[in-house]
Design a protein around this nucleic acid. Structure first.
Lengths: 337, 337
DNA sequence: CCGTCAATGTACAGCGCTAGAAAGATGTTT
DNA sequence: AAACATCTTTCTAGCGCTGTACATTGACGG
């Protein structure tokens, strides 16, 4: 099963390697007859160019790395899908790097692991801070996703979290909710996203003249539905009274729905719930879940736009692209009557 | 930002390239003093080996391709995660190839796309048949997942679908269900999995002496929760009477739960439901979903075992590994009282 | 005090492909 | 028919690293 090389084809066809290469690349300036002959040789031998060698010669790999915390988090798997499709469209392949939110793994994404392997990296950090990233930035084109860190020199794509949280909160206020909880602040979470969402939530309450109540900020232990469930269940046990929930993550919201259901509360009549990320789950919970919807395809497209400019040689300061969002209104928090 | 090469380090340290290479690889037979000196040069220049070049020289890429229909299908995203983790454990990186169940894309996976790029391919085909695969098999080590096709020469990992469907059906029968539906046969689905699951379902009914009723085999249009919902809703409208559902996919089951809920039926009192794949969703529906659970970590491990043997040079006939499964019993179909 | 053998280190030929320079072929113009 | 312009095709120097074959060194026994 010895691999067929360019030179083997060239010999069989009785031409030079470069001519074969020209045929493979569909370059002009190859006489039709010759082209046909070479093609026949290619087919006969079943020649396939060795991409590694091509890479070494051209310096471009045609691959980008996508580094995300968890492949199987619905938000990230949906985002991955869009990124993969955008990549295909633009002629790249994607290698997926799962960091599991581990600082060491995140660091590895930016350090020696990727040298010469990929043309660029799209990275959704969770634990690394701006300074870390700035220090490690290896010269490989890099675009960051999410809100964890935003070094000055690095490109960045995100949604306007404050305004999105504001929208969600206003939506609940319009329904008449006055005791609105925010789920969930996470102890180990140093990312900016939660803070920004919390900020938007607070801003919404303030502009409606509703008093902030620290008791209504629910803490979760980790990013799972289970944690969301527990957090809400405990709040209920503590006797906290609330009629609305803005959840920073669909999975938390799903846990919340379950906790509310278990405690005999009805959604949205007793408590209205808004989730975040508008993952496909949102359409299949009972009741279906109103959710903040980042435009994932737009995120993928913007990330690639920035990345390709970097790959093409742009060396300037970081650009920060804000991508649109909307509120997908479903049963858990319908429009005000 | 000129890249630092091995030879640059060698010059700075005043040694040969090979010695630097030896230090990088931690080979023995490098005097400690020299090693230190070389290491200093490496650090000073910030040298990072170029993986593409290393690949060309060694012939090994350290990457495998994972080709699946959809990244964001919960089953595949969970499977991907296990594969990614197994890959990390064994020193491989994963490049993910999304086929979207498109025959052309599936074909591309096995043809020129991956030549020389990866050491092996793990492929979950949907539309390609055994013969196609056998014809295209490019010599790159290959392991198939799922039941769509099983060419004689190719390795294969799957669960025993017949027996799993049998378990699910028996479980419902034990609860006293007698009008058990099978959801969902798909028109465009030529894969073996559905057939095998249907077979196990029928076998279960027969051994319990329950008459088969073609009316109880529900058809869906595509692999979405929406299609499952519609399929069940239409059956209800048609006046089909049933007290149990074996669903070939969790997403269908989720749709079914919703359809049943919408029609005022209670689960599991009126209709008991069993899903398939035990994706994390199953734990967060209301009611939670009993589901057939393939051992995903075992699938990942088995796939890598086979693949690594192929990479190591095994050239024999295809091995077929059956991986264990279980039935995760939750609220939608609890144990018989 | 020399020959021998490990232990270290060096030199260099590839890995397979690309791309630009140079050469060859063909056709056109005067 | 010579001179020139235009296509085609060949030649060949890398891309950066690895592994083999060979050179050097120093230690040690005879």
């Amino acid at each position: 099963m010895a691999r067929v090389r360019l030179i083997d084809v060239a010999e069989l066809a009785g031409v030079s390697m470069k001519t074969v290469s020209n045929v493979v690349h569909n370059y002009p300036h190859v006489a039709p007859a010759l082209r046909e002959k070479v093609q026949a040789a290619i087919d006969q031998l079943g020649y396939r160019p060795n991409l590694t060698a091509r890479r070494l010669a051209t310096g471009r790999t045609g691959m980008i790395a996508l580094a995300i915390p968890e492949i199987d988090h619905p938000y990230f798997s949906e985002l991955s899908r869009h990124i993969a499709e955008e990549a295909t469209r633009r002629g790249y392949r994607v290698i997926i790097e799962q960091t599991l939110s581990d600082p060491v793994a995140e660091r590895a994404v930016l350090s020696d692991r990727e040298a010469g392997l990929v043309d660029g990296v799209i990275f959704h950090p969770v634990r690394m801070e701006s300074l870390d990233i700035a220090k490690l930035d290896p010269g490989t084109p890099l675009v960051l996703l999410g809100e964890a860190a935003m070094p000055v020199m690095t490109d960045h794509v995100m949604i306007d979290n404050i305004s999105a949280a504001l929208d969600a909160t206003r939506h609940l206020l319009a329904r008449g909710c006055r005791r609105i909880a925010f789920l969930g602040v996470i102890a180990a979470d140093i990312t900016g996203s939660t803070n920004q969402r919390l900020l938007g939530y607070q801003q919404g309450l303030l502009e409606a003249g509703v008093q902030l109540d620290p008791e209504l900020v629910f803490t979760a232990l980790e990013f799972t539905a289970e944690a969301g469930l527990r957090s809400v269940a405990e709040a209920i046990e503590r006797g906290v009274c609330f009629d609305g929930v803005v959840s920073r993550d669909d999975r938390f919201a799903i846990g919340a729905l379950k906790a509310l259901h278990d405690s005999g509360r009805s959604v949205p009549a007793d408590v209205a719930v808004v989730g975040w990320d508008n993952t496909f789950l949102a359409a299949y919970t009972s009741p279906t879940l109103t959710s903040v919807a980042p435009r994932k395809t737009a995120i993928a497209a913007a990330a690639f736009d920035l990345l390709e400019e970097r790959i093409a040689g742009y060396r300037g300061v970081g650009r920060h692209r804000i991508v649109g969002h909307s509120l997908e209104v479903r049963e858990s928090a319908p429009f005000a009557p």
